[in-house]
């Protein structure tokens, strides 16, 4: 049983964040997923008991949100944005290259349990298109070959670092972060990147800045 006493104690601590206990259901589901790699029937029963809900009420939540998985996910969840902007700027080709390499399609897991592949929706990173995610960590500005290289390196057990975050761990570790976000990794991924600094750099080059506060002009 993966939902041991320590997981249950962590679940109980989540409840304290909210004025009403039911609000804890989403982070509790993330935590259950971090322990079991999916949201199991048992996890939903445990959460329902702890929150004094019916299993049906928890199931209703667990089946509504895309990130909760009712089947085991591979060690790594690979997502490729194929919404219009990323997809048409190359995400479609990135996705095709990964289906070729991994031999699986959307929402399928490789036989060795290493990778689950998904077409995902807009990740709020259109300036970094085409966008891929590994265990939801950003892998920005991909090409078909760079994406294949990422999964090859992960398959060999090598370290792969997110373009704007920490070294890739695994799907379950990210799910734990979503339940307990202050995981000590906030400093990873460093400073703002080229896309985030694009306008600031142009402003510096052209000597542009915001107007001074009236009466405080230097």
């Amino acid at each position: 049983m993966a939902l041991d006493e320590s997981v249950r104690a962590q679940m109980a601590s989540i409840v304290e964040r909210y004025p009403r206990s039911r609000s804890a259901v989403m982070p509790m589901l993330h935590l259950a997923q971090s322990a079991e790699g999916e949201v199991s029937d048992e996890a939903m029963r445990v959460i329902a008991d702890m929150l004094d809900l019916t299993t049906a009420e928890v199931t209703a939540v667990a089946t509504f949100y895309t990130m909760y998985k009712r089947r085991p996910v591979g060690k790594h969840l690979i997502g490729v944005c194929t919404n219009t902007l990323c997809g048409l700027l190359g995400g479609d080709a990135v996705y095709a290259a990964l289906t070729d390499r991994l031999g699986v399609g959307h929402d399928e897991t490789t036989a060795d349990g290493m990778f689950t592949l998904e077409r995902i929706e807009c990740q709020a990173a259109c300036t970094h298109a085409p966008v891929m995610t590994v265990d939801w960590e950003f892998m920005d500005c991909q090409t078909p070959s760079s994406a294949v290289e990422v999964v090859d390196r992960l398959a060999r057990g090598e370290t792969v670092v997110s373009t704007r975050g920490p070294a890739i761990r695994d799907f379950e570790a990210t799910e734990h972060t979503l339940a307990f976000p202050d995981d000590g990794l906030a400093g990873q991924g460093g400073e703002a990147d080229d896309m985030m600094l694009a306008g600031l750099r142009v402003a510096h080059e052209l000597g542009m800045s915001a107007p001074p506060v009236p009466g405080q002009e230097s």
Binding site: A124, L178, L185
Partner: peptide, 13 residues
């Protein structure tokens, strides 16, 4: 949104 863990970490920190 849950799909951006690094943004969540930074805000939580």
């Amino acid at each position: 949104r849950g799909e951006v863990p690094q943004a969540i970490r930074r805000v939580a920190a």
